[in-house]
Design a protein around this nucleic acid. Structure first.
Length: 265
DNA sequence: TATAATGTTCTCGT
DNA sequence: AACGAGAACATTAT
């Protein structure tokens, strides 16, 4: 379930477990995962070098090797990183396996194959070339108001548009809108400054709380939408059955009573 | 068996 | 031209 908070968990895992370790081997089980690069290129860029730095931007993870190359992890719908002991079993859908000089291994596992592992010489250039917007947690309220408030379309797809804001996906966009009391089909332009300010604040609250919950191994709060999101789900605040609506090709879940701001359809 | 699932990208229409 | 909506992509679980 990788959106910004989950990728942040991967970053911390990478930071504590992979940084400083030298890559000795790289096995690519599924060549398309490299998005046009060859296994030889990935091996050339990483083998013999240690990972020395890792950072997250939105849903992307950038890991730098001593050699200066950045390895870019895109997790798609089901991607994840798994650290293995020397005798540990690889996950079922391992696409790439990095072997460290100490015998440990790191797997890039991705059941649905929407993820990829790419190479980049420079993070900023990569972001620009791929039209990736600012990290959702790095956007100030003023800029956020401009980004969302100037959108002609619906607010939910705007929150999920990675060129506008980087890091929010289908599940967390529903949660953020629920916390802000705004309908997912409200038009961005229809929101006033007060609503945009609240949306920005709740976006930060949701993402930061989720990061902390994941880091401490706790579930998301039971009074959030997410634990109830799905068939027969009820609003944890008012008990109203949650409504589902197809928006921009995805399923939005919301409470029609608690989320009354913005009228559209 | 049909449907839906946490993402990105391409195509088409406005 | 710029923007927004929907389909397609691969695979599995319900």
């Amino acid at each position: 379930m990788p959106e910004l908070p989950e990728i942040e968990a991967f970053r911390r895992q990478f930071d504590t477990s992979a940084i400083g370790r030298r890559v000795d081997s790289v096995d690519v089980a599924d060549e398309p995962v490299l998005a046009g690069r060859s296994a030889r290129e990935l091996r050339q860029a990483t083998a013999g070098d240690a990972f020395c730095k890792v950072l997250r931007h939105g849903k992307l993870l950038f890991a730098r090797t001593n050699g200066g190359t950045w390895v870019v992890f895109r997790f798609g719908m089901t991607g994840r990183i798994a650290m293995l002991e020397p005798d540990g079993d690889p996950p079922d859908h391992t696409r790439i396996m990095f072997g460290f000089n100490d015998g440990g291994r790191m797997a890039f596992d991705d059941q649905r194959k929407f993820g990829s592992v790419e190479l980049a010489a420079d993070v900023e250039i990569y972001l620009e070339r791929n039209d990736i917007g600012p990290d959702a947690l790095g956007v100030c309220e003023h800029r956020f108001r401009r980004i969302i408030g100037c959108t002609r379309g619906q607010v939910k797809p705007a929150l999920m548009d990675q060129s506008k804001l980087s890091g929010i996906g289908n599940v967390y966009s529903d949660e953020i809108l629920y916390q802000a009391g705004i309908r997912p089909d409200a038009k961005g332009q229809a929101l006033d400054d007060g609503q945009l300010e609240r949306l920005h604040g709740q976006m930060r609250m949701v993402l930061e709380t989720a990061i902390n919950r994941i880091a401490t191994g706790k579930d998301l709060p039971d009074d959030w939408l997410t634990p109830h999101r799905g068939k027969d789900g009820k609003c944890p605040d008012c008990g109203e059955p949650l409504e589902r609506k197809r928006i921009s090709g995805r399923t939005a879940w919301f409470c029609p009573r608690s989320q009354h701001h913005g009228q559209a359809g």
